[in-house]
Design a protein around this nucleic acid. Structure first.
Length: 511
RNA sequence: CGGGGCGUAGCGCAGUUUGGUAGCGCGCACGGUUCGGGUCCGUGAGGCCGGCAGUUCAAAUCUGCCCGCCCCGACCA
């Protein structure tokens, strides 16, 4: 009983199934009756809202403005950018009718066929481009820095909760600039901002770099990505920023009169992160007792668990909890107020305690008559074993809470960084490469385990990348930035072709 | 779109081969018991068995058609 875990199977036993169970046990989300779509429950949505809150503040601080564009995109808009359409055509949901009528067999059938079908946005470059074309006339209108928080639909063949759903929530930034340099600077600014968000807020270490041509966004000249490692050693693409060159400006006719009176096409960018990040957070930090939520994203930082049963005076325990909650709510953490829950539910103490462990609340505080007598509280941290709890003087607890939350945040990041470091290898020949990525089972490690990150020289083309992906399920996640993964930047020879390569690239199996 | 699986109580499933009054576990409600730890006992509520049609005295069970979801692949934030 002592080492029974709250989640079954464990990561070691069956990682994918463990992931599903954590989501259910923490009450984050559930599958819906709608193909590929999930219901995000309050606890799960709150994690997304906290990501959103933080990112929105960062975007506004860097001069971006929020706007909202239509869910429906006329088919003709989408068709304007050839590569773009080709990339998304297969996963578009299309609205062809605008009315339902009772059919001959009594069921409802679509009627009122639309002259032009509407595509449910898989991304909004084209419809935002249409607005941009009208908004931009002069170099004085630039840069145009717009962001939208929205839902999008991609009719994926295979879906997974949070990581890939047919409908998902995201933010998509779209900007237009007067020069290539400015647009590239914007792309890199956002790329850096995403990396900071991942590390400082999600406590999820990432490798920043550029995508190869094969992995680029359809229609982009360059794509920059942040890649995180999950506990089964697979990579998760956690955010991308695209330098679109003049491709979309040309197809959407976004032109401006420059200082020299010449009519020029603008340079545009687009970038986004989605509810996939919530899946990344779950897979990065959670353990065999359930979700572990980084304090910066926690729907509640602290849960107070009143011990009411034995109390001679339950009202006293309540008053003590309410007063403590009030003190805590006056504190701030990560720039936002501390969130406190008090659980008065009339259920057994053990069940109550475990429900919050599974939900991943960073700090649990038990308050019973004994603690009140000593003017103290009994505190457990989610980043420590659940039995490792200790009594703390109440005022000391209040005073140090923000520091405790930060220390949990730091621990989670350090732990995840360690996992990434332990599972990143330099590889110098094809045989080692293939061996490294063969799926295996190792005692004490998640099942299945997918190798990890590999750094190897590469000078092949997109066709070779495609072949490696087919044969081994491995792809180039990115060409790491100069400041990433020290030791991967010296030139060498491609392990597949023998051709000279400027630096090593990052390989992994990906979600 | 190709291959496989599954639709029976809120959830997870048995029952279908051999047609004959719809079951189990968990959860839920109520009562008691327990409780600084996911307690135990009792009572109870809840289902025209995915849909339509057929065979039959009789269909969850047999036949046909349809619908939906899940898993594996190609595709992907």
């Amino acid at each position: 009983m002592a080492d029974k875990t709250a989640i079954s199977p464990t990561r070691v036993e069956n990682y994918p199934e463990w992931y599903q169970q954590v989501i259910a046990a923490a009450d984050l989300a559930e599958t819906s009756g709608v193909r590929g779509c999930m219901v995000i429950k309050p606890w799960g949505l709150s994690v997304w809202e906290n990501i959103k809150r933080d990112l929105d503040r960062r975007l506004k601080a860097t001069g971006h403005k929020n706007a909202y564009f239509p869910l429906f995109i006329p088919l003709s808009y989408l068709a304007k950018e050839a590569e773009h359409v080709e990339g998304f055509a297969k996963e578009c949901a299309v609205v062809t009718h605008h009315r339902l009528e009772v059919g001959p067999d009594g069921g409802l059938v679509p009627a009122g066929k639309l002259d032009e079908p509407l595509v449910v946005r898989p991304t909004s470059e084209t419809i935002i481009g249409e607005s941009f074309a009208r908004w931009v006339e002069s170099h004085r209108d630039l840069p145009l820095l717009i962001n939208q928080w929205a839902n999008v639909v991609r009719w994926e063949m295979r879906t997974r909760m949070f990581l890939r759903t047919a409908e998902f929530l995201w933010q998509e930034g779209h900007t237009a600039h007067a020069s290539s340099e400015e647009a590239m600077a914007e792309t890199l600014l956002i790329h850096k901002l995403y990396a900071e968000l991942a590390e400082n807020v999600l406590a999820m270490p990432v490798v920043s770099g550029e995508k190869t041509a094969a992995e680029r966004f359809p229609g982009a000249d360059n794509t920059f990505t942040i890649e995180a490692m999950m506990q089964d050693r697979k990579a998760l693409q956690a955010g991308t920023a695209h330098f679109l060159g003049q491709n979309f400006a040309k197809s959407n006719n976004i032109r401006f009169t420059d200082k020299d009176d010449a009519l020029k096409h603008a340079w545009t960018t687009s970038w986004g992160v989605s509810t996939r990040l919530v899946g990344g957070v779950i897979m990065t930090h959670s353990d065999d007792d359930g979700f572990v939520c980084p304090p910066r994203l926690a729907p509640a930082h602290v849960v107070l668990l009143p011990i009411l049963f034995k109390a001679e005076n339950p009202a006293l325990v309540r008053e003590y909890c309410e007063a403590l909650a009030k003190e805590l709510r006056d504190l701030t953490f990560g720039g936002f107020p501390v969130e406190v829950e008090i659980d008065y539910r009339d259920i057994s103490g053990g069940e109550k305690l475990w429900s919050w462990i599974k939900k991943g609340v960073p700090v649990r505080v038990e308050v019973g008559p004994r603690d009140i007598a000593k003017n103290s509280v009994f505190v457990g941290r989610r980043d420590q074993p659940h039995k490792e709890k200790k009594g703390v003087d109440k005022s000391e607890f209040v005073k140090t809470l923000p520091a405790v939350l930060q220390s949990i945040q730091d621990n989670l990041l350090a732990r995840a960084k360690q996992l990434q470091a332990d599972n990143t290898r330099i590889i110098d020949n094809e045989k080692d490469f293939v061996d490294y990525f063969s799926v295996e089972t190792q005692p004490g490690k998640p099942t299945p385990i997918h190798g990890g990150f590999a750094l190897a020289h590469f000078a092949g083309d997109s066709a070779l990348e495609e072949k490696l992906k087919k044969e081994h399920g491995v792809s180039v996640r990115c060409i790491p930035n100069p400041d990433q993964l020290a030791g991967s930047h010296e030139p060498g020879k491609c392990i597949f072709t023998g051709l000279p390569a400027a630096q090593r690239v990052l390989w992994a199996k990906a979600y």
